[in-house]
Simulated assay, not measured.
Amino acid sequence: MEKTCIFLFTANSNLSAYKFLFISLLHHQNFLLGGGAFPTLIAMITMFFVGTAGGIFPSIVSSVLLTAFILLGIIMTFVVTKLLSNTILKGVPSSFTLEMPPYRRPQIGKVIVRSIFDRTLFVLGRAIVVAAPAGLVIWLMANISINNISVLNHCASFLNPFAQLMGLDGVILLAFILGFPANEIVIPIIIMAYMSQGSLLELDSLTQLKELFVSHGWTWITAVSTMLFSLMHWPCSTTLLTIKKETNSWKWTALAVIIPTAIGVTVCILFANIAKLFV
C-alpha cells in the first residue's frame, strides 16, 4: 500500500524553496565545517598550538580549539541567516510545501543502483567539469616561468599586499582561489608554491610541514587567519553548480560566493590587525 506524506507549511512558493536551498547550501559549505576544511583545521591546531607529541593534555587542547571553531561556525550561521532574512530575503517566507514521495518498502538493490547513477556519478561529473580545467590551470601556472619565476609565484606576489592585510600571504590566498574545485588541495598547492615544484606535493609529517611554513614567515596569526578563511570563504565548485542548477539563477549563485567571502575577508582583517597590536 502506498501512502503519500505531505508536510504543509504557511506558504508554497518557489522563492521560499530557493531561500531554504540557498541558505542551507551556503551554511553547510561555508560556516559549518565540511570534509575539506577539517583536515586543514586539525593540521593547523596540531602544528601551531598543541604540537605533534601525544598525550591526554594535547588531545584535550586540540579538541577544545576545534570545538571552538565549530561553535564559531554555528554562531556565524545564525548571524548570517538573520542578516539575510532582514535584507535581501526580507519578506520572503521561510516556509513552503514539501511533498514526500509515496512510501514503498525499501529495495536495497535499486537504492544502491539509483544512488550510484543519480547521485554519485552526477556529483562526480559536476566536479570533473570544474576540476579538470582547474587542474590544467594549476599545472600551467606552476610550470610556465617568466624571468625564471613561475606564473604561480608571480600571481602570489601580486596578491601578497592584500593577503598580508588578512594575516595571510599571497601564496595562501592564491591556494584558496586555485582550490576552488576542492578545499582538500589548498595545502598541497601551498606546499607546491613554497617548494617551487611543478606538481602538487604532500610532506611526510606535520613537523616537516610546520618547518616549511615557519621558514616562509608563518606565525600563529597566520595559522588562525588560515583557519578562519577555511571556515568562511566561497563554496566549492560542486556546491555552486548545485545552487545554479536548483535555483536557475546566477544571482543566487553569485551571492553564494560574495556573502561568505566578504565575511571571511572582514573577519580575517579584523583578527589579524587586532592580534598584531598584542604581538
Rank of each mutant, 00 (worst) to 15 (best):
E2G: 09
K3M: 15
L8T: 05
F9L: 06
F9T: 07
S13N: 13
L15F: 06
L15R: 13
S16L: 11
A17L: 14
F20I: 05
L21W: 06
L21S: 05
L25V: 03
L26G: 06
G34M: 10
G34I: 12
G36P: 11
P39A: 15
I42G: 02
M44W: 02
V50R: 11
V50D: 09
T52R: 03
G54L: 08
G55P: 07
G55A: 10
G55H: 09
V61C: 12
V64E: 04
A68C: 03
F69Y: 06
F69H: 01
L71T: 06
L72E: 06
M76I: 12
V80F: 05
T81W: 03
L83Q: 03
L83D: 08
L83V: 04
S85Y: 08
I88L: 03
K90I: 02
K90V: 01
P93G: 00
S95V: 03
F96C: 02
L98N: 09
E99M: 14
P102V: 10
R104C: 13
P106T: 10
Q107D: 10
S115G: 15
I116V: 14
I116M: 13
F117G: 14
L121C: 13
L121M: 15
F122M: 15
V123A: 15
L124T: 12
R126S: 13
I128G: 13
V129S: 08
P133G: 14
G135H: 03
L136M: 07
I138K: 11
W139D: 10
L140A: 14
M141D: 11
A142M: 10
N143D: 13
I144N: 07
S145M: 09
N148E: 15
L152Y: 02
L152V: 02
N153F: 00
H154G: 14
A156M: 03
S157K: 13
L159C: 13
L165G: 12
I172S: 07
F180D: 13
P181F: 04
E184Q: 09
M192K: 00
A193K: 05
Y194S: 00
M195F: 00
S196P: 00
D204S: 15
S205R: 05
T207G: 05
Q208K: 13
E211N: 14
L212E: 00
L212C: 05
L212S: 05
H216F: 09
W220R: 14
A223K: 09
V224M: 09
S225V: 09
F229S: 07
T247R: 05
S249T: 02
K251N: 03
W252K: 01
P260Y: 04
P260G: 05
T261W: 00
T261F: 04
A262M: 04
I263K: 05
V265A: 02
V267S: 00
I269S: 00
I269E: 02
A272R: 06
N273V: 01
I274S: 06
K276D: 04
L277F: 01
V279G: 05
